[in-house]
Design a protein around this nucleic acid. Structure first.
Lengths: 145, 145
DNA sequence: ATAGGTGCAAATGGTTTGCGAAAAC
DNA sequence: GTTTTCGCAAACCATTTGCACCTAT
């Protein structure tokens, strides 16, 4: 009952074949403008392939992350969100009230990393950065606690 | 069988009492030079109070975080680490091989946040930042994959 | 008496894994 | 035939929660 589509060995994927499931997951990530968590990705996938399993989604997301095709981000302390890696690094700004996510990039991040590398004798391979706050619309609603 | 110690209402804690368990947890965090995860904190706590429960540890860590006494950091994608909040913000640099953690601070972070606030019309209340890489000793051991 | 904290055990929920079947070569 | 992937269900594990009891006021 599994999907049968010719697989091609893909060098970008550590010489692992591009199976139908993998192609489907990548397609969904490509279509999605935003980051998806594994469950939502699975929900969308199952509409095209009724037999794909959540385990396959997780396994392949992990693979994609390892080979550098996909970025995994933790935007809300609970689950991870996945998105296709792009040419320019970007980071996220999340509103604590409405959940709105804004992407931003800044050369400052590179500068910061360089500075830290110089001062610490570390080679920095990954910078995890996200900002939390209140967006334009929700600034006023900040709970007084 | 519970620990009985006079509780005092502590304004710093949202007018919640400083129970024996809370005092114990704070003491352990104070003694510990480094960040602890909940389980390790619990292991240390149980040596002083054989009946304290892991749930209490979690509940109070959450409370401490809410009132701003403690910082919660996710340093390894799996669990959270807790440490007493200090006067100056600092961030962490974690070695992917040996797990060594180096703390650093940089005015660059504040600059970055200011820049993002200006450009996005967001009020930024929290910056989550950590860097991953290879420390002096492990630089050479980077797996060739 | 009331309100809130605690201990215990069970539940939660995102993610991982063991295993047998299926695919590709 | 061998190797890898997949689907399914079960396991995992950090964290949370329901509930009865206890403590301080």
């Amino acid at each position: 009952m599994r999907m049968r589509i010719n697989r091609k060995i893909v060098p970008e994927m550590n010489d692992r074949p591009l199976t139908a499931q993998r192609r489907l997951i990548l397609d969904i990530l490509r279509e999605a403008k935003c980051h998806l968590d594994a469950k939502e990705l699975y929900q969308r996938a199952i509409q095209k392939d009724q037999h794909i399993s959540l385990a396959t989604v997780y396994r392949n997301l992990r693979l994609f992350e390892e080979v550098g095709l996909v970025d995994e981000r933790r935007l809300d302390e609970v689950h991870c969100y996945y998105e296709l890696k792009r040419s320019t690094e970007h980071y996220h700004l999340v509103c604590r009230i409405c959940g709105r996510v804004i992407e931003f990039e800044s050369p400052m991040v590179r500068k910061l990393v360089d500075e830290v590398q110089r001062n610490s004798d570390f080679y920095v391979s990954k910078a995890v950065l996200y900002l939390e706050g209140y967006c334009r619309n929700c600034k006023g609603k900040k709970q007084v606690s």
